[in-house]
């Protein structure tokens, strides 16, 4: 079953097309990565899917219904936002109490364990918490809600590497025991690459890539060796990146069948392209391909 289907979804603001013709189908019970540079439209897409803003055109179906003012859908959806605002008088314990009432599958014992693990002061005013502790609240709510559809939008600003790893471990562990659909948006691509089963890259409001991570391993390759040999290998193909140092050169290109063998026979070294590197190559190539005068939205 698919958890999220969008068809030609668009959101226009006065100056900019934040989302432009987004057509996606995200399967349920998977961890999906939603990647993109700042202003690519990630947050806008998640806000549309959770009914927080309205689409300019196109259609969407979330857990089988329209999310807009639809309590059946929204009670099954958790959206952990990077810049979640809380009332001035709120303490973490108040947030957790509200979450416990809002999410039918809320697990209080698990929430308590997470609070301890992330060392959250539950009775201090939220406005006095550090950026990392604020992120910690979001993580506790996002995980303990066990919502069938959970969005994490850059959930760990201010968290150090140890705490981020704790989040990944908890996410994997709880996801394995309680399968659900997770959409994770982050700039820490290298860190999450192995957690993702499927990846969507947005760029300038459009879908630049929509693929299973298994397939991505073979989607591109980097070859390096003598510049003449690299040129001969490229043979007119447009590489994603091509750098040269003296008589040596390196090129990264979208792979075709037989490339590896051909490169090896040409005496070139072959190396895999990580998700992070692929992301950088694709978004960079896309930026230089469009009119530089096109305004780029900021988050």
């Amino acid at each position: 079953m698919t958890a999220i289907v969008t068809t030609d979804l668009a959101k226009r603001y006065a100056e900019v097309n934040a989302l432009d013709g987004v057509t996606l189908a995200l399967e349920e019970h998977r961890i999906h990565g939603l990647l993109g540079r700042n202003g690519a439209g990630k947050t806008t897409l998640m806000k549309l899917l959770t009914g927080q803003v309205f689409a300019s055109s196109g259609s969407m179906e979330v857990l089988g219904g329209n999310p807009v003012e639809n309590v059946d859908v929204l009670s099954q959806t958790a959206f952990i936002q990077e810049s979640q605002k809380y009332p001035d008088t709120f303490r973490p314990i108040d947030v957790l109490r509200i979450a416990a009432g809002a999410y039918p599958k809320w697990d209080q014992a698990y929430a308590d364990r997470l609070v301890e693990r992330f060392q959250l002061p539950t009775k201090r005013l939220i406005k006095k918490l550090s950026r990392g502790q604020l992120s910690g609240i979001g993580i506790v709510v996002g995980l303990a809600s066990r919502a069938p559809l959970t969005f994490f939008d850059e959930p760990y600003l201010g968290l150090d590497a140890v705490a981020r790893r704790m989040f990944y471990d908890e996410l994997l562990h709880d996801f394995a025991e309680h399968p659900r659909t997770v959409v994770l948006s982050t700039h820490h691509i290298d860190e999450v690459a192995n957690l993702l089963e499927h990846v969507v890259i947005l760029d300038q409001g459009k879908v630049l890539l929509d693929a299973d991570t298994d397939e991505l391993h073979d989607a591109a390759l980097t070859v390096s060796g003598r510049a003449d040999d690299v040129d001969a290998f490229l043979a007119g193909r447009e590489p994603l990146e091509h750098t040269r140092l003296g008589s040596l050169a390196t090129a990264t290109l979208a792979a075709r069948d037989g490339d590896e063998r051909a490169a090896r026979e040409a005496g070139l070294d072959i190396s895999p392209v990580s998700l992070q590197a692929l992301f950088v190559h694709l978004t960079t190539a896309n930026a230089s391909a469009t009119d530089p005068a096109t305004p780029v939205a900021t988050a």
Binding site: R30, I31, D169, L172, A176, N194, L195, L196, T213, D214
Partner: peptide, 18 residues
Amino acid sequence: STNELAAFLRINPATAGK
């Protein structure tokens, strides 16, 4: 098991299962 492997290697359970 798939889940043990996923947790140990820090990878998606579907990948471990595959």
